[in-house]
Nucleic acid binder design. Structure first.
Lengths: 338, 338
DNA sequence: CCTGGCACTCTTCCCATGCGAGTGCCAGCA
DNA sequence: TGCTGGCACTCGCATGGGAAGAGTGCCAGG
């Protein structure tokens, strides 16, 4: 329906607009790209593209700017993912390799993404539900008080206090610790409930209450979704957003503080590859003038969490997608090594 | 040197300017505050205050606005700390009591502070160096790989991997765990180095290398200053900063991302009470147009960390100081209880 | 030492004007 | 049918000149 040239015109408009931040006119287009046709022809194409809803004019007789729909077409059909250069890849790897623990990995990833894309970076901590248990530790803090520490294969640590219904001896605790670990160590979180189901039966009646309490706390910890933490960075890049300032970035900052919103945002992306949500495609109203580029990352073949960037719809999609993909890949490697 | 009335004029200027965000003139002042004198008199006082550097005019013949020095005098001499009302105090307490773990306490504190003051809130995690050890846990992950988990009295958990110079048996590990805990549990971090000094001597020669390695990792963890994490929130409030947007908030956002800067900022405040740093009193350049109100908080009588807010120099100092102080007090209580 | 009055200084707002960029349409040409 | 050059038209934006208003500094008088 859209001729090849019209698609090229759209591509050129997107590229120019992303570069200059100014509405682009027919004359400027023909000067900067050799489309082989005259401005008049381009004007006709533009009129057609506008009828289809891919571009719009801010005012009568200013240049055209892409609409969300225009960006969508650009991302889907007209632009690939721009791969990182070799030096960039090396820099990413070097920077991430310096990390000392999980917090540091996440923190470095955020900084890296923010710098590479010059946008706001969001990195979700490796999700509990998809990881495996490395170790469960039980510490007796008081006769009827136990601290439960859960360590995951991605290096994440969760702790919980458990108030026991009855005093619980050191010997029983050691027993529980040993049995628990022999059953769940190395297993996926989703399998844990099944694996510990009958564990209380192995204990003396007077200890069963406590064992059950500990186990249910453990299970709670495993499913606790609101514990899906994330880290954001590069908010200073919001200042490069546009001219009509406060009105635009206010809701964005607010949305960024609502971890729930962000988690949902990242969670929505189900693709195996890089997912792009453009403008109004984002459910959250405050993000209607932003695009979100996200991707899953993980230590093995499987994604355990997501990361991405939030930026103006007017962004360099190929470059951003390339950076996001590359960072995700290297973070995965780092996690697998540690 | 400054007469009583002139101080009152300064106070009135600060209050009005904070309220209206606009330079305040002599006529408006006499209308809104009954100073008992005419605008002309106030003008003379203003001229004097300007000579002394407490106020300034943005342009010839606009009203006056307070300078950093003016705010300083206001904070030191002219305004007290506005205490929270009883309902506010109750709300603070209720909100904080819902927290389930340390992360949650900090997160809630940040949200609370940001909401109460309508500014950017910064909360430092309880510092390691001033807390006491609750428990040290050692987990064998591989024959020559140990995970060290440190649990503090404030509920904070730090973990480190230790690569041992030689394989280390389960029995030795249990031995080390027991000896270590019996020595350091309940002790202050600063005392730990002294307490574990001779610990390797109690082990077989072949294990001493590993024990030393583990201990030095523990000591590293204790002193590691860069691990002083903090959480910030309420950045959306920056949009209420002023009219000349990007130029002002850009450096602020950048400074907020530099944890080092923030930690230094909070660390500088040595007072037992609420500390206020106004405008250029902040060492960091990006924060020259902001004021920082901070205070220490802690579970006992002693401060284990700081919290505070960052806002425009034109802020409601008495109210902000009251909110910061109240929140710090209640967070301290919560930490002491858990 | 305070007060009212007065002249003066700027900023800000508003409007008219001109310019330029960009468009839409049309007639002509391949 | 599709491309091109030409041309009239539309707006947005920057420019400049008043006019208004707020606020000041200073002075003479109480």
């Amino acid at each position: 329906m859209l001729s090849e040239r019209r698609l090229q015109v759209l591509r050129a408009i997107v590229q120019d607009y992303v570069g200059t931040e100014e509405p682009v006119g027919s004359k400027a287009l023909t000067e900067r790209h050799n489309l082989g046709v005259s401005p008049a022809t381009v004007r006709n194409d533009m009129a057609a593209l506008e009828d289809e809803g891919f571009i719009a004019q801010p005012h009568t007789s200013a240049g055209r700017i892409p609409t969300d729909k225009g960006y969508r077409l650009f991302v889907d059909k007209l632009a690939g993912v721009k791969p990182m250069t070799a030096p960039e890849r090396r820099a990413i790897q070097n920077f991430l390799e310096g990390a000392v623990d999980l917090d540091d990995v996440v923190a470095r990833t955020v900084r890296l993404l923010a710098q590479l894309t010059r946008q706001v970076a969001v990195v979700q901590y490796p999700s509990l539900t998809r990881s495996t248990v490395r170790h469960v530790e039980l510490l007796s803090l008081a006769p009827a008080r136990v601290m439960l520490v859960l360590i995951t294969d991605t290096g994440r640590v969760e702790q919980r206090m458990v108030d026991c219904p009855a005093p619980f001896g050191e010997a029983s605790l050691a027993d529980l610790r040993a049995r628990l670990n022999s059953r769940v160590a190395g297993r996926r979180f989703t399998d844990v409930p099944r694996l510990v189901e009958d564990l209380p039966d192995a204990f003396e009646p007077e200890d069963r209450g406590t064992v059950s309490t500990v186990l249910s706390t453990l299970l709670e910890t495993l499913v606790e979704e609101n514990e899906e933490r994330l880290m954001i960075g590069g908010t200073a890049n919001l200042t490069r957003f546009g001219h009509d300032f406060p009105l635009v970035i206010r809701p964005v900052l607010e949305a960024l503080e609502e971890q729930v919103v962000l988690l949902k945002l990242l969670g929505e992306a189900k693709d195996p590859g890089v997912t792009v949500r453009i403008g109004h495609e984002n459910a959250h109203e405050g993000l209607n003038s932003t695009s979100v580029v996200s991707v899953g990352y993980g230590s093995g073949g499987e994604a355990v969490a997501k990361l991405g960037v939030v930026g103006p719809t007017r962004m360099d999609y190929p470059g951003t997608m390339g950076a996001v993909r590359a960072v995700a890949r290297y973070v995965g490697q780092i996690l697998a090594e540690s």
